[in-house]
Simulated scan of single mutants.
Amino acid sequence: MDFYRPSLAELRAAAALPSHTATGLSNDVILTEIEAGRLKPEWSCIATSDDGDLIGRAMWWGRDSQEPIALDIWDVAPGAPEPTRVLSGLLTHGRVLVEATNGRALLPHTLRVPVGWRDRPEVAETVQLKMQVASANGLGRANERLQFQWDEGGMVHPDPARLRFTPASDEAFTRLFADAAAGSLDVMTARELEQTTAADLARDEVAYYLSCPGERSWWRVAQTHDGEIVGLAIPSATPTNRNVGYLAVLPQHRGHGHVDEILAYITRFHIGDGARRITATTDAVNTPMAAAFDRAGYKLVEVRIDLEPSQMH
C-alpha cells in the first residue's frame, strides 16, 4: 500500500474512483471542483494497493485557490482491503503533504449522508468507520447538521404582520449577534463561547457573512411596530443558491413565534428576487429551528456530520 501526492492527471483519475457516494460528493462534482482549481494536486493524497490499483483519495478544498480550508473528499474504494488502514493513511500522509505547502492540514471534514441514514446499514457502517478513524486522527468533535431546501412552487407564508424589517449598521448587527448568542442551541456557537467572548464571536460572525456571496444590503433588524428589536435576519447566498443565512430571536423574545415571521421574511425576500431554490442548515439538536423550517415548507434533503479538530483554538 502506498500513499503519495498525485499529478493533475492522477487527481482527475481519482475523481472517478468508485466510492460510497452516500457519504460524500458525487464524482462529477469532484471533477468540476478540480477543474475550477478548488481541489489541487498539492492539497491531495491518493492511496494505491501493492498492485498499483487506486484504492483511496483525500482532497483538501480551498474557496479562493490560495489555501485549503477543509478536507472535502476522503474515501476508500468499496471492497478495498484494510479500509481502516487506507482511511487513516490518507489522513496521516495527506497532512504531511499539505503541511509541506500550506502548514495547516488539521482541517474539518463533512460527511454528507442521506436522510434516514441510520436505517441504511451499509451507510451507517461507513459513517461509523469514518468517525472512528477521524477521531483517532484528531477530528474528534462531531456535529450532525440538517440540510433543508425550499424549491419554486413550495409553500410561501404571508408577510409577517407583527414585525417590520429595517437596515442597521455593522456595529448594531455586531451587538445583536452577541446578544443572540446567549442560550443559543447552535453547537458551534456554544463551542466558540467556551473559547472566546460573545463580542469577539459576534465580530467573527459579521466578518463571515460579509465574506459570503450574499449582499450586505440584504441584512435587516426585526422589530415590532413600536420599535422594539426582537431579532435579526441575514439573507445570504452560496455560489449556487440563495441561502437563509442567519436568523435569530433575542433571548427575551423567544417562544412567541417570531422565528416563523423572520424566516417568512427571508424566504419572501429571496423569492421576490427571483430565487427558485433556497437552502438552509441547522443543527440536529436545534429542534425548534428544524420545526420552523418544516412549518415554512422547507424539505429535509440531506444530513451532514461535521468532524472538527478535537482541540479548538
Rank of each mutant, 00 (worst) to 15 (best):
Q132I: 04
P114M: 14
L111I: 08
S135D: 13
G154K: 11
T126G: 13
V123L: 06
E122K: 06
A136P: 05
A142S: 11
N143V: 09
E122M: 07
E125S: 15
A134Q: 06
L146Q: 08
R118W: 05
P121F: 11
M131W: 00
G154H: 01
Q132T: 03
N137D: 07
N137M: 12
R145P: 01
Q128K: 15
E122A: 10
E125F: 08
R145T: 02
G154I: 07
R141T: 14
D119I: 08
V133L: 08
Q149L: 15
M131P: 00
T126V: 15
K130L: 11
V127D: 04
S135W: 00
L111C: 11
P121I: 08
G138M: 06
L129M: 13
K130V: 08
L139G: 13
L111H: 13
G154Q: 05
Q132D: 06
V123M: 05
R120K: 03
V123D: 02
T126S: 12
R141S: 11
P114C: 03
D119W: 06
K130M: 12
V115C: 12
R120H: 08
G154T: 11
V133P: 03
E125I: 04
G116K: 10
A136C: 00
G140V: 03
G138N: 14
N137E: 14
E125A: 15
N143W: 07
V127S: 05
R120F: 06
Q132M: 06
E125W: 05
R112A: 02
V113R: 08
Q132Y: 05
V113D: 01
A142P: 01
P114H: 11
